[in-house]
Write a protein that binds this DNA or RNA. Sequence first.
RNA 1: GGCCCCUUAGCCAAGUGGUAAGGCAGUGGAUUGCAAAUCCGCCAUUCCCCGGUUCGAAUCCGGGAGGGGCCUCCA
Length: 516
Amino acid sequence: MLQVYNTLTRRKEPFPKQPGETVTMYVCGPTVYKPSHIGHMVGPVIFDTVKRYLTYLGFSVRWVVNITDVDDKLIARSAELGTTVPALAQRMTEDYFECLKQLNVTGVDAFPRATEHIGGMIRMIGHLIAKGYAYPAGGSVWFDVSKDEDYGKLCNRDPEQMAEGGRIEPNPHKRNPGDFALWKGAKPGEPPEVTWESPWGPGRPGWHIECSVMSTTLLGETIDIHGGGLDLKFPHHENELAQSESATGKTFARIWMHNGLLKLRSKEGKEDKMAGSIGNVLNVADALKHVSGEVLRFFILNTHYTSPIDLGVWDREKDPIPTSIEAARKAYATFERLAERYQRITGTAFHELKAPTRASTDYPPPLRDFQQRFRHHMDDDFNTGGATAVLFELASFLNRTADTGKLESAQDLDSPEGQVFRQGAMLLKELGQILGLFWSAPASLALGADGQLVGGLMQLLIDLRNNLRAEAKKIPGKDDPAKKALFAQTDLIRQRLAELGIVLEDRPTGTTWRRA
RNA sequence: GGCCCCUUAGCCAAGUGGUAAGGCAGUGGAUUGCAAAUCCGCCAUUCCCCGGUUCGAAUCCGGGAGGGGCCUCCA
């Protein structure tokens, strides 16, 4: 049975709905003022996987991710760049969407923009004032935390103590130190495109009210899952929860899920989260120059989502990419080589194999066991790290099956091993799909722009080399100088290709090549 | 100062009361003309330290050390 860790109760709970029912999920999206870095992808990848698994179990999931396209940082950054807030937001939103696409995050049903919901925010703020939870002061509107009895329940925080030791800016208009802005009065000099009229004067919405309104508008007053990064717990989610429940009187979210943050370690060994303010970011676009989106996704899913993801020490001068991602690339190559093998044997591409997206039960015993173990891990609070281990074991099983069955081509698929291989490959695809993997051709087979030419030249080289090998093998004995000379030539060709990043593999059925 | 969390092999990382998954690296073998790939082995008597509970603890409790997140914008 599916269990999910709920930040609100601080324990694992049985999932509150039954297969067949609709699950609503809201995840806080980005403020679109800078290109996305790897850390921004953790939440989307995890919740995309959550949706895929829930779908696999038979739930129907509706998932919303907001885009914050008006805010202080956007105003500051667009002024710096000499552009407008909408133009900058548009550009960075496109960057974000492209990153999601590269990481195969396909499950988001709606991306509402904050600026499309100003009316709803004004209504909710008015409602909160009418109910006595909020008050206008100095052109802004504040939420009164002292009026909300259970304020602080998500983070176990006492509003009375918030002033002490904290770094809350004193504001003469606030009644309590912990009060936060629902509506921010326009400051002089702010561009008109970030100013809206309201009953309390011109201004723009506070950050927290956006999510309350967009989730309520698109998913209803009570949602099933609210997700986001651990750094958003306070104040953002706490405030969102307070506003929403004060306004509706209903439970805002049944389950709160928080993903761990991506961390980089400095050379001194100190760990830091990846953040623009610290300057230690790795942009998605830059990472994609060195590894595929599949590898990045696999890397993220290797760790349980509640744990911080350790990028380790990264020496930018030396390595194009952190060694932890490089290790993930090497590990993932196991699956890519199996995909190549699948293609050699069956003649069809593994990533194009159509596998069920719902749980199927008709696998024979040795395979069913892999499926059950995979599900067991996923049922335990989406333990993707444990689940990937099962994928590796299944890959190993498939290679073993192909070895013992001597599977080389499509004719061999009728044998008992051939049948198991075919079904096992289907299961691997089925389970990989849940993690959002195996959707693209292995990078090692990519030919690039001059694909036909490169492929042709490679075949030419391979044919010439194999002529030499055949000549050499005709010469009897081991130490014949002529034989040695021929093999020296074939080895030189392989060596020089390796220096170009191309690996030749001599198999009983012929020579294949791939990128390292 | 307050609130939360983490510490498992050289590295990454599952495991949440029944005797340590998986990956990277390393290493021995099968296979190969040699490689590569693949397969079969080996690689933590022990889970930061010290106490306690228990027939039994990496797992629960107490204390200590180290690290992290939040309390300000942050995925």
